[in-house]
Computed example of a mutant assay.
Amino acid sequence: MIKTSRKGEWLEIVIPEKWTSYCVQDLFRTIWHAPKKLTHSLRMEKGVRVNGQPADWMVPLKRNDRLDIRLFHEQEFGIQTAYHELSILYEDDHLIVVNKPANMDTHPNSPNETNTLANAVAYHLLSKGEYRHIKHVHRLDHDTTGAILFAKHPFIGSILDQMLEKREIKRTYLALVHGIIKVKKGTINEPIGRDRHHATRRRVSPSGQKAVTHYEVLKTNHKQKLTLVKCSLETGRTHQIRVHFSHIGHPLAGDQLYGGAPLFSRQALHAVKLQFIHPITEEEIICHAPFLDKQEIFTGVDPYTI
């Protein structure tokens, strides 16, 4: 674990033994893979210091050197702030993980929209005196519930984007589907594209984007002919789990857009766990998202055991 602390606008990192062969430029390029534009800006604005002095980016660092990076200056939120009750699963100076309720978008689709999770997160930060340009790292559908990750500043946002693309952020979902799935573990590897006959639907299409969903059967209800499955994604296509299970003849309960019966007022899909290595501290972060839905779609399931 990397020892860090916040000093006003600056993040202080105590250089560990394993970084003593690196210079500052190596850290930005090799360890963090920071964007060139952001790195150049920090360099030109003297936004990096070593032991209190402007950094020489090419000099090797020594153990216990103090590396300071100016990450926490005030920024416009980029969206309107609006109060909504939040269920926060994890938060530090760099990122926040929130448990999204049903009937709420992840982020605004128009400047005047305020009934989204991003608006609520912005209000939460404002109430703490943190003026940050927040960014969602991934999204959930309007009626899908569970854990969503937001970045608090561009540096961490760019690193988390790369981690998501490399599948280094593990997202686990629970879905309740129609029918009894007999194969206990499986993978659905089918490309997904737009449905040209319906504005919001997606469908399995040979010309679509690669989409891979892994699943494991957790419970079966033969009386109601329902199966509870745990899913993990290699890709993050729109409606991916919903499209894939509908394609194999097991649409999600409540998901009328993809052939599910209206057992509930929404599709039975919950992002139950988010797991990753913190890109700054290298600490393992595991967030379990409890069920907020009053419909009790996943009755008898303990989210903390998934």
Score class of each variant (00 low, 15 high):
114 T>I: 11
287 C>W: 12
232 S>H: 08
114 T>G: 05
39 T>A: 13
18 K>A: 13
89 L>Y: 02
59 V>W: 02
111 P>C: 05
62 K>M: 04
16 P>H: 09
264 F>L: 04
44 M>E: 14
126 L>V: 08
224 Q>G: 06
246 S>F: 10
245 F>Q: 09
268 A>D: 10
285 I>C: 11
53 Q>D: 05
223 K>R: 09
223 K>T: 13
75 Q>Y: 10
124 H>N: 01
166 K>Q: 15
75 Q>I: 08
96 I>C: 04
253 A>P: 07
29 R>H: 05
184 K>F: 04
261 A>E: 15
96 I>L: 06
26 D>G: 04
24 V>N: 00
236 G>T: 00
175 A>P: 04
34 A>Y: 00
127 S>D: 07
244 H>P: 00
96 I>D: 09
130 E>V: 13
75 Q>L: 14
76 E>D: 15
285 I>E: 14
68 D>F: 13
146 G>E: 11
219 K>L: 11
76 E>L: 15
94 H>G: 01
106 T>H: 06
89 L>K: 00
1 M>F: 06
254 G>T: 00
165 E>A: 14
23 C>V: 06
301 V>T: 09
24 V>E: 01
287 C>A: 07
173 Y>Q: 00
92 D>G: 03
223 K>Q: 13
145 T>C: 03
202 R>H: 14
28 F>M: 12
221 N>D: 15
29 R>V: 14
168 E>Y: 11
54 P>F: 03
144 T>F: 06
92 D>F: 03
122 A>H: 01
68 D>Y: 13
52 G>F: 10
243 V>F: 12
20 T>G: 03
243 V>T: 08
283 E>K: 14
63 R>T: 14
80 Q>K: 13
193 G>P: 06
214 H>Q: 08
163 M>D: 15
223 K>F: 10
110 S>D: 12
216 E>N: 05
139 R>V: 04
212 V>M: 08
277 I>R: 11
248 I>R: 10
142 H>E: 13
268 A>T: 03
218 L>M: 09
262 P>L: 11
215 Y>T: 01
46 K>M: 11
153 H>M: 02
134 I>A: 07
153 H>L: 10
40 H>V: 06
237 R>E: 10
191 P>V: 01
185 K>F: 02
82 A>P: 00
122 A>T: 00
51 N>F: 03
19 W>V: 01
31 I>N: 02
211 A>H: 04
75 Q>V: 08
297 I>P: 10
213 T>V: 02
279 P>T: 12
89 L>N: 00
182 K>P: 00
234 E>L: 14
201 R>Q: 13
268 A>N: 03
125 L>S: 12
218 L>T: 00
265 S>F: 12
16 P>R: 06
275 Q>S: 15
84 H>F: 14
78 G>F: 10
211 A>D: 00
296 E>D: 11
112 N>F: 06
208 G>A: 02
172 T>C: 03
12 E>I: 04
299 T>I: 14
292 L>G: 12
